[in-house]
Amino acid sequence: MSVQLSVDGRRVDVNVDPRTTLLDLLRERLDVIAPKKGCDHGQCGSCTVLLDGRRHLTCLALAVAQDGAEIVTAEGLAGGPDGEHDLHAMQRAFLEHDGYQCGYCTPGQICSAVGMLAELADGHPSHVSPDLTAAPKATDEEIRERMSGNLCRCGAYVGILAAIRQSAQASA
């Protein structure tokens, strides 16, 4: 079946097997390898991208069901594969605070962090928000809870938190 997508600003029109997940389409067909396959079952967050501006897993999304979607991966946040000079503020913060070790979870962490701060700015509550009806704040506890869908087996959580805290303060 044919699917049209925007991937990191590039228009893509491909024919896919309906069984193909968005993650496999990106990685295997389009050679967009920033999103990683840590589990293939929604249990780790390493395949996270921004889909129509929201953080989204790609391993549990069928490509055919995403027709028309606009996808931004960690690579796209940086302005494409050669975008080193143009890193997103969140990416710079991860570098500055050593927010990774092996780097495998990192593209997912970064997309998730960007999407998460947007949710916070929109006033979405979380499991740890003491008052459901009040505007949530970017406390450490809130950041940790909201980022819990992104596992880091290397245990780089300390640096990840510091990076996101800095970005949250900068954007507040």
Binding site: H127, L132, G149
Partner: peptide
Amino acid sequence: AGWPAVSRALLAGASGQIRNQ
């Protein structure tokens, strides 16, 4: 405001990404 248990139940489930989906 009106059904906090429902909001809390949703927020206690899965992850931010999965809840978006």
